[in-house]
Simulated scan of single mutants.
Amino acid sequence: MTDSTHPGEAHVNGIGQRLNWLRAGVLGANDGIVSVASLVVGVAGATTDTPALLLAGIAGLVGGAISMALGEYVSVSSQRDSERALIAKETRELAEMPDEELDELTQLYRDRGLTDATARQVAVELTAHDALAAHLEVELHIDQDDLVNPWHAAISSAVAFTLGALLPLLAILLPPPAWRVPVTFVAVLVALAITGSVSARLGGSHRGRAVLRLVVGGALALAVTWAIGSLLGTTIA
């Protein structure tokens, strides 16, 4: 493909894809933490009944994991369909107008800083080796052998959400009733600080701001749902 001019590009792209998946996993876990924590803390504000808390937590975990999986599956399926359509279009153009496509590839390498003669030579050699792969990589930044997999995305998202959701579920069920809400608050805010730090590191953003956003947002969500649960519990009682 284009290893003769950019030998590290495929390696860098592979690392970038892995970081994107890891970042998505961290965000999925964060969603699980916040959504299930808000749910069980709200219920805990209304009742100390353990079966009710368990039922609410499991319902939130299962429903959230399925929703995340479906959302990722639909989104990634759409992306893969678009990539396949672009591959089909490029294949058709190479068959119908090979000279124009060679000129286009030459221009792409000129735009990368190669001289006219070198750009033409590279384009000719890559076209002879694998014209479709050359155009997909340089023009569209697609690897036809490494298209996104919607099933992988769906499963990864569901697993990440589930792992994140288990923390508040255990935190609300294991302590004595009087300690359930405070323990859950602390556990969730610590977990959010960790996920915020990891996501900032992966994204190269400011760690303090990322952590602060998640911790403050999570604290507000827990406080609001607990207050609503307490008000409803008092009203029902």
Rank of each mutant, 00 (worst) to 15 (best):
G63C: 09
D146K: 07
S4M: 10
R92Y: 03
L170A: 14
R110N: 01
G16C: 05
L202I: 15
Q144D: 12
L53Q: 14
A193H: 07
S38P: 13
T47S: 15
G16F: 05
T162S: 15
L169K: 08
L61P: 03
A219E: 02
G28E: 12
A44R: 03
T115S: 15
R80C: 01
L140W: 02
D111W: 04
R207V: 15
I33A: 02
L212P: 05
R180W: 02
I172Y: 12
I142L: 11
P7K: 06
G63D: 13
T235R: 12
V26D: 07
L54V: 11
T47V: 07
L27I: 14
P7W: 09
M97L: 13
L220F: 15
A65D: 02
H11M: 08
L174H: 03
S156R: 12
E96I: 01
G229C: 10
E83S: 08
H129I: 09
G25D: 05
A10M: 09
R180I: 04
R110A: 00
N149L: 03
S38E: 13
L108I: 04
A52L: 12
K89M: 02
A219P: 07
L126K: 09
D31Q: 04
T184N: 12
A85M: 10
Q107M: 13
V124Y: 01
L174T: 08
L222C: 13
S205V: 10
D103H: 06
I194D: 12
P182D: 10
